[in-house]
Computed example of a mutant assay.
Amino acid sequence: MKKTSNRLADGREIVYYDASDDAVREAADQRPLEPTATASEIRYDPLLAEWTAVTAHRQARTYHPPADECPLCPSRDGRLSEIPEPDYDVAVFENRFPSFTGGPGPETAGGPHGLFASAPGAGRCEVVCFTSDHTASFADLTEPQARLVLDVWTDRTAELSQLAGVEQVFCFENRGREIGVTLGHPHGQIYAYPFTTPRTERMLRTAAAHRDRTGGRNLFDDVLDAELADGQRVVLEGEHWVAFVPHAAHWPYEVHLYPRRRVPDLLGLEEEQRAEFPRIYLEVLRRFDRIFGPGEPPTPYIAAWHQVTGAVPERREFALHLELFTIRRTSGKLKFLAGSESGMNVFINDVPPEAAAERLREVASE
């Protein structure tokens, strides 16, 4: 893998990742862009003990441009985009409308009783373009292409976790208008947060309680062992990875992908795990597109890497895993987060996890 870093016209970094060591990336951004002006603030919720980002500048972000004006396609035939090169393997650049940006700053506690704490929304947000092919999806990638993306996620995790003020790095993909995607080109994002996210903190607390209750056992190891022993919800097994629908799945079709050997983050994966991942993940994605039968539009989904980076004391107890889920519950119908889910964070799933797993096994590639 060859890595080349350049700058866009407004000062943002763009990094090219190429499978070939002889790739040359020297094209300059010819757009007349002013330097970016962004500001992010985080505010603390004293009732839930968690942070919310406030980012007014994101209201102006690009929204569903026509395919011939896609900002993630290469710059070709006189049309200039976010990516100056006429072609690329994988390209990563700083988001023009980031949720988190800049370096850390002091936290202030204002308002009556000092309850209104806030701080700069320090961090970084990046866009990861998986391929230059606008009409493709991740599931269309070859195994070498998917392996390159895995290596990119790993490299970005290593680099972003070293930034001042960053406590967690989150790699993810949103696909489909139903999810809220505003650009159709196959891409994902990476958020470098200035705090550990509430979901991760909750998993760490639960794992610690399980360890204390069981005399030192690891919760993630026990969950994976239990799913394998039960077998009803296992979707796909490899030598180094296991894909299963969790016992208490929140979403109509939800798959968790775990390496058999526990590691806390992407950097901990060994070569055997990296080599097998593309085959397993691509097969799961292709099955997702076949869930609802022939003739159905591509399945909208969110794919989210859960990892603990940096100096979090409990990180060795955490298990890197990928969670993939769709909000489509049946043909033409979506699962909305209504009163119970949005108001109380209590999910109600209309599709039994065992039925979802069975369906995902039925649509295996021949």
Rank of each mutant, 00 (worst) to 15 (best):
H113E: 11
A119T: 14
R287C: 01
T36S: 15
R286S: 05
E323Q: 14
G102F: 07
G188E: 05
E314V: 05
A49K: 15
E271M: 13
V24D: 11
I42F: 12
V54Y: 10
L224C: 02
R25Y: 15
R124E: 10
L320V: 06
A207T: 10
V90R: 12
V312C: 08
P66N: 07
A122T: 11
P194Y: 04
L267D: 12
E34F: 06
T157G: 05
D155M: 10
V24M: 06
H321V: 03
L269A: 07
I280Q: 07
W153D: 01
V223W: 13
R361Y: 11
E69A: 15
E358H: 14
D155L: 05
Q232R: 13
D45G: 12
R96Q: 15
R177W: 03
P278G: 13
R290V: 06
M1Y: 11
L285C: 12
S118Y: 06
A9N: 03
K335E: 04
L48F: 07
Y63G: 01
P112I: 07
R359I: 08
N174M: 07
V351F: 03
Y44H: 13
Y253A: 03
E314D: 12
E271F: 06
R76H: 13
P112R: 11
H57D: 11
E317I: 04
D77Y: 05
K3L: 11
T309F: 08
L148W: 11
L80Q: 15
P65S: 02
R147E: 13
T214V: 06
G231P: 03
G103E: 09
D22V: 03
D350T: 14
N345D: 10
E270V: 15
V235I: 04
Q30K: 15
I190P: 10
E201Q: 07
F325E: 03
G111R: 05
A53Y: 06
F97D: 06
T131V: 09
T197Y: 02
R217H: 10
W305K: 08
R233Y: 04
R96E: 07
A53R: 12
R211N: 04
A229D: 15
P264S: 04
R213D: 12
G310M: 10
N349W: 00
A304I: 08
E69V: 13
V263T: 15
R213W: 05
